[in-house]
Simulated assay, not measured.
Amino acid sequence: MIQELQTTFTQIEQQKKNLLASIADWTPERLALQPGEDAWCATEVIDHLCKTEALILSVLPQGMEDPQPIDKRDRVNFHMLERLFRSEKQVKVPTTAHATLPAMNFLHQEVVQRWDRTRTELAQLLDAIQEDQLKGGIFRHPQTGWLSLPQVLTFFSVHMIHHTYQIKRLG
């Protein structure tokens, strides 16, 4: 199981690199261009991805100390969210996740550096994980319910897929 987590981590790192490479040649003005009143610019999308991962990462150690049962409803809800995020359908951030909303008081490169630091912390957590810490739900997603660590990593992946569609619409 630990090897699978490392493989998934490698995959989400590659996704991140691909996403950032897709906008690497954009000008600062293009990165900050908002296509509409309630629409995010590319830098805001990256900020949201970073904030989401950092927030989840911040609660994982506590969740691993007290894992919760993952019931059938949690699994079904996660499967539905995963399918939704693999589609191009636009989705609003849950009101309970307001801390992950982006802000435009930074430079694009600062956001990328924060995301790099968050991923370094995630890699360190995965390097220190023991098999017995992989039982049960360690993060409660506001829409789906309890997620295991493998599901958290899958969430990071499909969340990026979802926002990659958004970046493509900006291009």
Rank of each mutant, 00 (worst) to 15 (best):
E37N: 15
D71Y: 09
P28A: 11
E37R: 11
L55A: 15
S58M: 11
K72T: 15
W40Y: 13
Q68D: 04
A97P: 02
T43N: 12
Q68K: 10
S58F: 13
D71N: 12
P94L: 07
D25E: 09
P94Y: 07
E29G: 10
K72Y: 13
R30A: 04
L84T: 10
G36C: 13
L33R: 14
V76L: 08
G63F: 02
D47T: 12
V91H: 08
D38I: 07
K92V: 10
L33D: 14
V93W: 03
T95E: 15
P61I: 06
K89E: 11
L31G: 00
E65W: 08
D38T: 15
D25C: 09
I23A: 00
E29D: 12
T96S: 07
I56N: 06
H79N: 01
V45W: 01
V59I: 09
C41M: 14
D25T: 10
V45H: 06
N18I: 05
W26Y: 15
H98E: 13
A97Y: 06
S22K: 09
N18D: 15
T27C: 05
S22H: 07
M80R: 09
L60H: 05
S22V: 03
C50H: 14
E65A: 01
L19W: 01
E88Q: 14
T27A: 04
P28G: 02
P94E: 10
I23P: 05
H98N: 14
D74P: 07
D74R: 02
P61C: 10
C41F: 13
M64A: 06
F78E: 01
L49M: 11
P67I: 09
A32L: 11
Q34G: 12
M64S: 01
S22E: 06
F78V: 02
A42G: 07
C41T: 08
D71K: 05
A54T: 13
T95V: 14
G36I: 11
L84Y: 03
C41W: 06
Q68L: 06
D47K: 02
I56L: 12
S22W: 13
L49V: 05
F78W: 06
T95S: 12
R75C: 01
Q62L: 15
S87H: 02
T52L: 03
I56G: 00
L55E: 06
F85M: 13
P35S: 14
A24L: 02
H79T: 07
L19C: 02
E29I: 07
Q34S: 14
E44F: 00
E44R: 09
L60D: 07
Q68P: 09
P69T: 13
L84Q: 13
I46L: 09
Q62W: 15
R73I: 05
E65V: 03
E82M: 11
L19I: 15
P28L: 05
Q62S: 10
G63C: 01
N18S: 14
L55R: 05
V59N: 10
R75T: 05
P69W: 03
E29T: 08
F78K: 00
R86L: 08
Q90G: 12
T96W: 11
A54I: 06
W40T: 00
D38G: 12
H79I: 02
D71M: 05
H48D: 08
A32S: 15
F78C: 00
F78T: 00
D47V: 04
S87G: 12
S22Q: 07
K72P: 01
I46E: 04
G63Q: 02
V76I: 10
M80T: 03
L19P: 03
